[in-house]
Design a protein around this nucleic acid. Structure first.
Lengths: 222, 222
DNA sequence: ACCTGAACACCGTTCAAGT
DNA sequence: ACCTGAACACCGTTCAAGT
């Protein structure tokens, strides 16, 4: 068998391969599972090999997060109607962060990441299409992006807390709702009354309701 | 000098003392500085003594966070006009999280904490005063609380990243703005154009602008 | 009941040595 | 240029032993 002239190992390490492995570990076992020991085991390599392609753990997490966000932005097919497109993009981010809770934590730890560029550009562009006046554009885009990432991050924290078991989720929400319901209605009128809705609410729908409130507020700026 | 009958050491450990020391360490050196070793040194005690009052590190962080939020809610004197009161409460939370960035990270890690009860109650009550219809109340309160905590958390992440030096902050924002300005205006029209505003914007004002957009959106629900 | 601190089972990161 | 893996300087947490 004849060796190729440039004998490059097809299974050689690269930042991309490492980042993909890291993302798989994060999806499997959450943030605590991503250790350099787990990574070297999965890639059958040594620590130095990884550090040769990646500056440190923080760099690794950032790169994995960028990859997820970039994929969402690439896949988010956006229709013509800007209002609906804003809902689609927002929901795409929400779902991606729900599926990869570590992304939510990372984004709130390091905003201004390159991946967020695409998000700002897309959302800002759609706000322009909505005729938001120029002087309000920056604040409106900032607020909406922050709302989307903020809520998605909070939701991801819950997802992380509750594993992926639906029964767990109901039990947890039920327990919190019971605590809320047990509060003195004179001292906590709102929370006491909101207990039922807490038990029954759908995070995704509540998220979208928030986006709609936002868009309604932005519409008053026109 | 006569010993009191129950000779309780006034300098004895208690959860409150431990939590206060932890908060001081967190304020001084950030989240990475809070270790059980630093805590035992500061309190001149052993690990076991701390574990006797506190379940683990996560419990400690949660308790310290609850204390900060409870203080904000206690101190937030709220005027009669609900719209203004909502802005005051929101700003109080923003400022507290800005002053104690670790609170922002912790809140997005563990929502549904007891401290947030007070926040939901206050904000929910003010929305009732704003005549938000009952069926929209839960979603509106959830969205607003999430917005406030989300943005404050993002802002805190920046604060953590940038230390407390104002020159650092300007240099950092300047660098990001320069990167944004350098982008191809055809490919990134919005971000390219927003670079100037990014350099000049005030986080606190942008936060309040977002709250106002929100309240304007909520007003359309009436 | 409350406290002490050695010990355990982990971390991220470095670096001399290999190919 | 790229990889190996022992070693270092840390962690959070436990627990037998003390008062």
């Amino acid at each position: 068998m004849i060796e190729p002239v440039t004998k490059r190992r097809t299974d050689g390490l690269s930042k991309e391969v490492i980042v993909r492995a890291a993302a798989a570990i994060l999806d499997d076992g959450g943030e605590a599972a991503l250790t350099f020991r787990a990574l070297t085991a999965r890639l059958s390599t040594g620590y130095g090999a990884i550090y040769h392609h990646v500056a440190n753990k923080s760099d690794l997490l950032a790169a994995a997060t960028d990859a997820v966000i970039a994929r969402v932005m690439r896949d988010a097919v956006v229709g013509a109607e800007p209002r609906q497109a804003l809902r689609t993009v927002s929901l795409g981010l929400f779902d991606a962060i729900d599926a990869h809770p570590w992304v939510g934590a990372q984004l709130s730890r390091e905003p201004w990441r390159p991946a967020l560029l695409e998000v700002y550009e897309r959302i800002g562009g759609l706000l322009v299409a909505l005729d938001v006046p120029a002087e309000a554009l920056f604040d409106a885009a900032g607020a909406l992006v922050n709302y989307v990432l903020g809520v998605a991050g909070q939701n991801a924290a819950n997802a992380r807390l509750l594993t992926s078991d639906e029964a767990d989720r109901e039990a947890f929400l039920g327990a919190v709702a019971a605590r809320w319901a047990a509060l003195d209605p004179d001292e906590y009128p709102f929370v006491h009354q909101a207990a039922t809705q807490l038990r029954e609410h759908d995070d995704r729908e509540q998220f979208l309701a928030g986006v709609d409130i936002f868009l309604a507020g932005i519409a008053t700026l026109r």
